[in-house]
Design a protein around this nucleic acid. Structure first.
Length: 589
DNA sequence: GCCGTTTTCGGCCCGACTGTTTTCAGTCG
């Protein structure tokens, strides 16, 4: 039996919830399965490890019953309850819920009343205009479903990388600011997962505050960036942008701004937890503000509005929670106890510890890259070109490394003479070869300031092989940093099978620093794993892995990932002054 | 099915928009 990931387990539980939903089961029972699935996906630890110590019920949202289902799945490869459910409802009917506008109720009726069992037969039925015969279904619903199927089948990736979505959201914001006067457009900001800096984005959410919502909605609908208005109401509308992204705009009155921004930033799970917390204090929380339920001290119906978001949190007894933390992973409890971490910021960084020149696959000379780093305010930058042992790009052999050393020495000498406070560190991104040996001999590695070790090839090795390979590399005392540990490329290449938990434990034990690769296509480690790494005692380096000067500007994505992982400046070594940072590396043994 | 500053029962977040319903259910986020 192949090993399951947390995501696989979550998918099975979610499927149970979906089938129950189609069967019309109690919605809270459905919710329980969906909540448990969400919770397992957000877990920093491998679910097998939790199961091994019998701690499944300690996972939030997992009780006795769901714990038994998970145990069955991990031990026997199948959940008996799910197998029964699959006998009752065809999987194609569950799939039908992916079509926009088709939920559990419609899917169930299409199946029972028309005999439609999957998306293909749904399409055929809609084309034959059979849907409009059903009570509650009309011609518009039929068209909407056909269009939805087309959209679904044309779309390859459901979510796009933040680096593509964020500029698009900012562009919409800038375009509206350019058209509307400040008196009409009092506030406007991207909300949703863009504001939380989530690594991938489903659609864009933008929030505006205005005394004249119609004017803002009108301007939004007629932007040049908009190709299609999907629907549009009094305060809320959805369009498709020229880049294919869907974008929602919500307009509220200025006095509602604080509550609305809290509401539309999400995540859904954070929002639900916040509204539950408010209820306990006798207030119902929505996007407009708080309304007293009569269960607390305030009189029923009493309302509170907030022009600033922080005041919503403060009113409920919480410190303001940075958007990056809003995933219901303990941030509300921490804010209540006034124990939120002092999150790292870009300004805390003093240098970078992973980058390339034209000696391997970078675009610029060593000097140009170093100057680009210096211009961005860094005090040090690590030149770490690829080593030999990596077939696809011209990796450096021992002789070339020594040639580089001379160039680095001369550049540093020149800056020193000019009184420039900048140091070019000489390192390598040494290849961890398929058998775990490194791409350069130890005596060369010993001559370098910092060694980053990474995997770029034989990415499809099985879990045990690639984990053992990585552990072997970590044992080498010259390895300082483990680069982009899982090798994933968002939307292009899945992570390797690497047992991240075991590797992080080894990094903690050996004192190897773990990288958060800031390139938005990588973000590797991701937020959940980075948080786990620090829990296990690892230190982190955040680096862009720059191959050009512009790549250096990708750092905000790495910082955001670190913030989503709850990291403080203390957890990250490149917040330290040069000598202190180097001492940390050298003292690891 | 889960959970506990209403703790082993009785709750479980909230509202906008659409389509087709003449008063609201379904979907979505």
């Amino acid at each position: 039996m192949s090993r399951l990931t947390n995501k696989d387990v979550a998918a099975q539980l979610r499927l149970i919830g979906d089938i129950l939903q189609i069967k019309g089961e109690n919605r809270f029972r459905v919710l329980a399965f969906h909540n448990a699935a969400e919770s397992i996906e957000n877990l920093g630890q491998d679910i097998y490890a939790i199961h091994r110590v019998g701690a499944l019920t300690e996972i939030p949202g997992v009780g006795k019953s769901i714990a038994e289902d998970i145990a069955q799945l991990l031990d026997a490869g199948r959940i008996e309850f799910l197998e029964q459910l699959k006998q009752e409802v065809p999987l194609g009917v569950v799939e039908m819920m992916k079509v926009p506008g088709v939920g559990p109720k419609k899917a169930a009726r299409l199946w029972r009343e028309l005999g439609v069992t999957d998306i293909e037969s749904l399409k055929a039925a809609a084309e034959a205009q059979k849907l409009r015969g059903l009570k509650g279904f009309g011609a518009k619903t039929e068209e909407k479903i056909l269009k939805g199927i087309e959209l679904l089948q044309s779309r390859k990736e459901e979510r796009i990388p933040l680096a593509a979505a964020r500029p698009a959201a900012l562009e919409v914001v800038a375009a509206l600011r350019a058209i509307l006067p400040k008196t009409t457009l009092v506030q406007i900001e991207p909300a949703g997962s863009v504001r939380r800096w989530k690594e991938t984005i489903g659609d864009l959410d933008i929030l505006a505050a205005s005394p004249d919502p119609d004017a803002v909605t009108q301007a939004f609908r007629s932007l040049d960036l908009v190709t299609e208005v999907l629907w549009s109401g009094r305060t809320k509308s959805r369009v498709r942008l020229i880049n294919g992204l869907e974008c929602d705009l919500r307009v509220v009155e200025p006095r509602h701004w604080g509550a609305a921004l809290q509401y539309f930033t999400g995540s859904k799970e954070h929002g639900v937890a916040m509204r539950e917390l408010a209820l306990k204090q006798g207030w119902s929380l929505n996007e407009y503000g708080l309304t007293a339920t009569g269960q607390g001290d305030a009189a029923v119906g009493e309302q509170r509005f907030f022009e600033r978001e922080e005041d919503v949190y403060h009113f409920l007894g919480l410190d303001w929670i940075p958007p990056e933390l809003r995933e219901n992973r303990g941030e509300i409890e921490a804010a209540q106890a006034h124990r939120l971490p002092r999150l790292i910021t870009q300004a805390d960084l003093q240098g970078e510890l992973h980058g390339h020149s034209d000696w391997s696959d970078g675009r610029l000379s060593i000097e140009a890259m170093a100057e680009a780093a210096r211009k961005r305010g860094y005090r040090y930058w690590l030149l770490s070109d690829h080593s030999a042992g990596l077939g696809m790009v011209g990796g450096l052999d021992a002789a070339r490394v020594r040639e580089q050393a001379e160039i680095v020495r001369r550049l540093n000498q020149r800056w020193a003479e000019q009184g420039v406070d900048f140091r070019l560190l000489h390192g390598i991104e040494v290849e961890i070869m398929a058998d775990g040996r490194l791409g350069l001999p130890d005596e060369i590695l010993a001559e370098l300031d910092v060694v980053v070790a990474s995997i770029h090839s034989s990415l499809r090795q099985d879990r045990e092989t690639i984990t053992t390979r990585c552990l072997k590399a970590l044992e080498n005392p010259h390895v300082d940093i483990l680069g982009h540990p899982t090798g994933r490329l968002l939307g292009q290449r899945p992570p390797t099978e690497l047992d991240v938990e075991v590797v992080l434990q080894a990094c903690a034990a050996y004192g190897v620093v773990v990288e958060i690769n800031a390139n938005p296509a990588r973000l590797d480690l991701n937020d959940v794993h980075a948080r786990r790494a620090v829990e296990l005692g690892c230190k982190i380096a955040i680096s862009t892995d720059a191959h050009s000067a512009e790549d250096l500007d990708l750092m905000p994505y790495g910082v955001a990932t670190a913030r989503r992982a709850w990291l403080t400046p203390d957890d990250v070594i490149n917040t330290r002054p040069l000598e202190e940072m180097l001492t940390l590396l050298r003292n690891r043994r």
